[in-house]
């Protein structure tokens, strides 16, 4: 990073550099910058997609705070994030530690854990709708074998959210791969040294392994924070209408419905701006906090 920022070794002209990155520059301007600005402008307008947008000032922004559904989807999304991220991190690290052991068939087990995270979320949503089927699904059938009568899952207001979390945990394979890569980088000497110091397995996990993979944890948590706020496809196919008592109605589903079902495009733009601000704020907080718990080697 240092070298990139240094100006002293600039050898080529700025025009040459800009020319090389021009595909991204043009794409960024047309497909990202213009839409973001447009979205900001539309958030101050009433716009149904047919008639010309009418400026209405802060009405949408004020209306947003008074809209009970906004609070509902914000709460649902925050609850999902608060459940899925910590549980996913613990499970992901645990799976990586296990898959890092020298055991027969290592590549096969790693593939099995990783594969689900590759699948289209629509497919994941459909597969789990069938898994959670109250009468014939695999989960309740398995529970019945041990004498437990399972809940109706997707139709049960208190189990709708846990169902989405369980489905999310199924797709943590890509985080496991990042942890595994981090684990491979832990220098052997550190373990040998801690062994000589008489550290037990727990102490080694806490004082050597976890600090050494903290950059990987940070990477996964930041990516996770950005993505949980965009959760859409799986709940959209599992819970048309948001599920019982709208307990599985997430933020992006609400933005989509406001825009493309009710054609309230101006309001949807205000909502999506709020989403962008939340993501930026959370990412900033994550970077702030990282100073206290992320250990970069050599730092």
């Amino acid at each position: 990073m240092k070298r990139t920022a240094a100006h002293s070794d600039a050898r080529d002209g700025v025009a040459c550099g800009l020319l090389w990155i021009s595909p991204w520059l043009v794409g960024f301007a047309v497909f990202v910058a213009v839409p973001i600005v447009l979205s900001g402008a539309l958030s101050f307008c009433e716009f149904d997609g047919i008639r010309r947008p009418v400026f209405i000032g802060l009405e949408h922004w004020r209306g947003l705070f008074a809209d009970p559904l906004v609070w509902k989807v914000l709460r649902n999304t925050a609850v999902y994030a608060a459940l899925a991220l910590p549980v996913g991190t613990v499970l992901g690290v645990a799976m990586a530690l296990l898959l890092n052991q020298p055991i027969p068939g290592q590549t096969l087990w790693r593939s099995v854990v990783f594969a689900p995270s590759l699948l289209p979320l629509v497919a994941v949503g459909i597969i789990w709708t069938w898994m959670f089927n109250a009468r014939f699904g695999l989960i309740n059938s398995a529970l019945a074998l041990v004498g437990i009568s399972g809940p109706t899952w997707l139709n049960d207001a208190s189990w709708a959210m846990p169902s989405v979390v369980i489905l999310g945990l199924w797709s943590i394979g890509h985080t496991v791969v990042v942890y595994l890569a981090g684990l491979q980088d832990v220098p052997r000497e550190l373990y040998e040294a801690s062994h000589l110091d008489g550290a037990g397995p727990w102490s080694r996990l806490w004082h050597v392994t976890l600090p050494m993979i903290s950059p990987a944890m940070f990477f996964n948590i930041v990516v996770g924070l950005i993505f949980v706020w965009q959760i859409f496809a799986a709940p959209y196919v599992m819970f048309p209408g948001g599920g019982p008592q709208r307990n599985a109605y997430f933020y992006t589903m609400y933005v989509y419905d406001q825009a493309f079902a009710y054609r309230r495009f101006g309001y949807a733009c205000a909502l999506s701006w709020v989403q962008l601000l939340i993501i930026l704020a959370l990412t900033a907080v994550a970077f702030r906090s990282s100073r206290h718990w992320v250990h970069y080697r050599g730092a």
Binding site: I21, F28, V32, I36, L38, L42, Y251, S272, L276, I279
Partner: peptide, 23 residues
Amino acid sequence: FFAICLATMMVPFPAIMVPSYFL
């Protein structure tokens, strides 16, 4: 420019889907 490029990773598609549609 590289920092700006990296920062754009944070822009979620839902945030730009409405204006993109009209564009």
